[in-house]
Nucleic acid binder design. Structure first.
Lengths: 225, 225
DNA sequence: GTTGCTGCTAATGTATACAAAATCGTCCAT
DNA sequence: ATGGACGATTTTGTATACATTAGCAGCAAC
């Protein structure tokens, strides 16, 4: 069943949630490029709801820095330069490293088993000569969500949601290198080992390295500058 | 003992901002104890505005984890146990340490001068046998805000606002004796030295130690459990 | 030609009315 | 008496109407 975390599910969610997902989708897909004003009424027409849930969604997007407020109080799509992306990865490395350290102390046997099977799925997705990118991304995301759940810190989870997806805005032209994907799965394996050993320093170091490597893979694959 | 730090400016802010400040004040002052339901209409009556800005304020408070949502969608005042407080300090230590490291690279001469004069004011506030706690708190907060500004990361600033729980700072400080306050000012002095030397590792270490010491001062002063 | 004012327009902020959903009490059946 | 289901009431979600304010165009004065 595809129903993964935040995306999808246009079905039963509230109007505010649908509005959030849809507007965020517009931004991430590049349909709303940086600087584009986010006018409540126009968005209400697009999403098909009233301004009230739109406002709700926009406040969330503003809090997550997908949108920024002009001096006059209007919202526009945020413009992330390469420094912002680097900063996002740096924060992720710190926070997810911390999450991994907490998880190493707290993870249960069943959570560990879930992590193993999740990473097995990731390895399967990248095993073929023609890797299953979508499968990898979904599995990767689930893996990190599981770690976050094992860390048992709602505050950490709150801070990390939104931080994870933002760099993909700039990744439209990025190609995925199969060896990078395989290395990622291997690092997940190391993390699982660290969890099994309940070594929080090891877990933190592996996770930090994992994310910082992702940063540099991203930078190498980007049209640079 | 009414008008404390965070309240302030009931004057020109928007209704939503006033509502946010007022409700947050109720929570921080303990007038709304953990588990107390936050009903929109009741709060609208208290604040004297309609439900719309109240909802706005509640969403912010929810995002900052001052309030949590019950399964049914109702909001109640969050209950922070001692582990949450430890986690908050740990995150602050990481993030403010990161901010200090960034600031060490970016701080300007005038910002450094501001920092010096700010810390001079703090030292003056704690110099007397009967230290000026309010003055210390205001100065302390300004000092950390200046560092955050020098770090030049809106994302970091966004994440840290809401993490810097005023009540904790206050409770910690009120249990400080004079030598603790002086030590805090001294640590600020070290940080200024690190900035002047543009040594980001030093700055990060000093800031991390500064905040972690505050945690333990808080723990020592708490009735534990 | 430029600057500054004035009025209009468009956008957000706020209030209220209405709809949907959840909680809680009550009543019925067992 | 207890369990469950139903319905009334409370509460939140959504829509819409109104108020306020920022932006901007156009015009006038210099």
């Amino acid at each position: 069943m595809p129903g993964n975390a935040t995306s999808a599910s246009h079905a039963a969610a509230s109007a505010a949630d649908r509005a959030y997902a849809e507007i965020r989708g517009l931004i991430l897909a590049g349909d709303a490029s940086p600087g584009t004003p986010l006018r409540e009424e126009a968005l209400a027409d697009i999403v098909g709801v009233s301004r009230t849930p739109i406002r709700d969604a926009l406040r969330r997007l503003e809090a997550e820095l997908y949108a920024v407020r002009t001096p006059g109080g209007r919202l526009v799509v945020a413009d992330w330069n390469i420094d912002d992306v680097v900063e996002i990865f740096a924060l992720r490395a710190m926070l997810e490293g911390h999450a991994a350290a907490r998880a190493a102390r707290r993870i249960t046997a069943s959570q560990l088993a879930e992590l193993r099977s999740c990473n097995a799925a990731i390895e399967a997705a990248v095993a073929n000569p023609e890797p299953d990118i979508a499968g990898f991304l979904a599995g990767n995301r689930r893996f990190h969500d599981l770690v976050l759940a094992a860390s048992a810190s709602v505050r950490l989870a709150t801070m990390l949601t939104g931080l994870v997806e933002q760099p993909i805005v700039r990744r439209t032209a990025t190609r995925y290198d199969r060896s990078d994907l395989a290395r990622s799965a291997h690092e997940h394996g190391q993390l699982i080992q660290a969890f099994a050993a309940r070594d929080e320093d090891w877990a933190r170091a592996v996770m930090t390295a994992h994310i910082r490597r992702a940063l540099h893979a991203f930078q190498d694959a980007s049209p640079s500058k």
